[in-house]
Nucleic acid binder design. Structure first.
Lengths: 300, 300
DNA sequence: ATAATAGTGTCTTTCAGACAGTATAGT
DNA sequence: ACTATACTGTCTGAAAGACACTATTAT
C-alpha cells in the first residue's frame, strides 16, 4: 500500500499547509455580441458573435489561441475562481456566469494531468473595459461561426450511428482559426451515448475547440427558453437589436412580427427613441425582470 | 482543520496510494424507476423514482448516506472513471450516462480539498443485478421525493430576489433522509445569478443533497424534450407504464389521450400484449430510435 | 423622393389541454 | 356483473409561422 514513496515525500505531500493545488483549472468562455459597422449611413450595423481568446506565450501550444483560465486556488471555491478569472480578463463583476462542462481526458494537456472546469459568461460589449484588448496580454475577440457541415447516419440492427460534423471558424482581422468537431451519437437499443471529439484543430490550443463549440450549442439552446440574451444587451436597446442578437446566435433569420410577439413579455418599453439613423426612429426597451413569473421556470 | 482526528485516522485518511491521483472524484447519481406492488390483484403497481445511495463506513459523515463515487485514476479519463464506477456499483455497461455538474467548494469535504464531478445515470430496474443491493456494501435504493415547498419573492429597485425552497425526502424501508435545498435567484438589472445551497441536510453526506436535487431537476427538464425516459424502461413496455414513468419524474398526472399523442412517434408497437392482469390486456411497445430524425435535435 | 428601417394586423396551421366515450380481460 | 384498465375521437383555445400592409426619418 505504501509502495515506493519515501517518508519525506509522504509528509510533504500531506502536510496540510504545503498541500499543492490540485491540477484543476477553471476556463471561461466569454461571449459577446459586437456591432460591425457598415459603410452605408442608412444601414444598421451587423451583429456578430465573438469569443475572447488569449495567445499562449509558453509551451505547450505556444502561439496558439486558448480560452482564458487558470488554476483554482487552494482556498477558493470553484465558482469564485471563475468569477476571479472573469474579473481579471474583463474587469467585470456581477456578470452572467454558468458552469458548462468539465473536461478531464488524460492526455488533454501534454505536461501533466489537468482537469478543466469550463464556465460560460455573457457580457454586454458596451460595458467592456479594454483589458480584454490589451495587446500585452494578447487577448483578442474572435468572430465566431459554428455550422453543421456534414451529417451521416448508419442504420445498425439495433439502432443507428450518427455523425454530425460541425465547422468552427474564429476570425480576428487577418487571423483565422479553424476546427472541426464531430458529434457521434450512437443508439444501441434504448441506450444512447454521445461522444464529442475534435477532428481537426490546428490553431486552437488544447481541446478548447470542443469547449467553444459546446458553449455555442448551450447558448443556442438556452436562448430559446430563458432570458440569457439580455445579458448580451446594453441597458436599453431596440427590438431590432434584440432580434439581431437572437439571429446571430441561432444563425437563422426570424420574422419581425413573430419575434416581437414572442419576446413581448420580456421587455418594457421606455419613452426614448433612437436618433440620427437615416430612417424612422426606433423605440428603446429595457429588460423586464418579472417576465419569468409568467413562465415555467427552466433555468439550470 | 484536523481537530480531533487521531494520528491513526490521519494516516488512514491520507494513504499514499490515494495521493498520486488528483483530489478529484467522480460521483454518480444512479436513478431508476421501481414497481411498487399493490395489494389489489386488479390494480397496476405504482411506480416510484429511486436513487442509489451508499452508507459511509468511515469518517467524515460516518454512517451517513452518500452518492457512490470514487477518485479518478491518474491514467483514466473522467468519463471512463464514471463508467468504471457505474460498472462497480451496478455491474452494468452501455448505460445512459451524462455529466451533470462539478462541485468544488473549499469546505465541502472536511478532510481536504475535493472537487467532485457528478454524472447522472439512468438504468432499467429489470436489468439490474443485485450488486447494488449487496448488504456488505450497504448500498440501497432510496425512494425519491422532491417538491417545492416555499417560494418567496422580494422586489428590489433594480430587479428581484427569489428564494425557492425544495424539500428532498429519501426513504428506504424504515430509513428516512431529509434535506432542504434553497435556490436563490437574484436579478440585478439584466444580470441574473443563481445560487443553490443546502439549508438542512442531516443524514445525507457532504453536499450530496444538492447533487441529488440537481439531478432530478435535470431529469425533469430533459424528459420533456429528449428520449431519456426510455433508458428507464425495459425492452418492451405498455404505454401506461411509459406514462407512469413520466408522471413519477414530473410529479404530475397526465391525461392519457394527450400523452399518447405526444409520444406516439417515439415508440413502435409490437404484436404482443400483457396477460393475466385482471383487466383488458395492453399492447406492448418498444422504443423507436429513429424518432429523433423528425425532431429538432436538442441533446447536450 | 427615396432608401432603409419601424411597427402592426391577420390568416392559417399546428399543437396542447380537456373531456367524453367505447372496449375488454379476469374474477 | 363488475372492476380496473385500454384505447380513441373530437372540441377548444393558444401559440407558431407566414405574409401583407402602413409609418417615419435623414439625406
Amino acid at each position: 500500500m505504501f509502495n515506493t514513496t519515501t517518508e519525506n515525500e509522504f509528509i510533504k505531500a500531506y502536510d496540510v499547509s504545503k498541500y499543492e493545488r490540485p491540477s484543476v483549472t477553471v476556463d471561461i468562455l466569454i461571449y459577446t455580441v459586437f456591432n460591425q459597422d457598415t459603410n452605408n449611413y442608412r444601414k444598421l450595423p451587423n451583429k456578430v458573435l465573438e469569443v475572447l481568446l488569449i495567445k499562449r506565450k509558453d509551451h505547450p501550444y505556444k502561439d496558439k489561441w486558448a480560452i482564458p483560465g487558470g488554476f483554482v486556488n487552494e482556498d477558493e471555491n470553484l465558482d469564485d475562481a471563475a468569477r476571479r478569472e472573469l474579473k481579471e480578463e474583463t474587469n467585470l463583476e456581477n456578470i452572467y456566469l454558468e458552469q458548462l462542462y468539465t473536461y478531464g481526458d488524460v492526455l488533454r494537456d501534454p505536461r501533466t494531468r489537468v482537469i478543466s472546469c469550463t464556465y460560460m459568461s455573457l457580457v454586454d460589449r458596451t460595458h467592456l473595459n479594454v483589458i480584454a484588448n490589451d495587446d500585452a496580454k494578447d487577448a483578442k475577440w474572435f468572430n465566431v461561426q459554428y455550422k453543421l457541415v456534414e451529417e451521416k447516419k448508419y442504420i445498425t440492427n439495433d439502432g443507428y450511428l450518427k455523425n454530425k460534423l460541425y465547422k468552427l471558424v474564429l476570425t480576428e482581422k487577418d487571423i483565422t482559426l479553424e476546427a472541426k468537431v464531430n458529434i457521434q451519437i450512437e443508439a444501441k437499443g434504448r441506450n444512447i451515448s454521445i461522444k464529442r471529439e475534435i477532428v481537426d484543430s490546428t490553431d486552437i490550443a488544447f481541446d478548447h475547440a470542443l469547449a467553444i463549440a459546446y458553449g455555442i450549442e448551450r447558448l443556442r439552446n438556452k436562448i430559446e427558453y430563458t432570458d440569457i440574451a439580455f445579458s448580451l444587451m446594453p441597458e436599453t436597446f431596440t427590438l431590432t437589436e434584440l432580434q439581431q442578437v437572437y439571429e446571430v446566435i441561432l444563425d437563422t433569420e426570424l420574422l419581425k412580427a413573430n419575434f416581437r410577439r414572442k419576446i413581448s413579455g420580456m421587455v418594457i418599453e421606455t419613452n426614448e427613441y433612437t436618433r440620427d439613423k437615416g430612417h424612422r426612429p426606433s423605440k428603446l426597451y429595457r429588460y423586464n425582470p418579472n417576465w419569468i413569473d409568467s413562465h415555467i421556470e427552466r433555468r439550470n
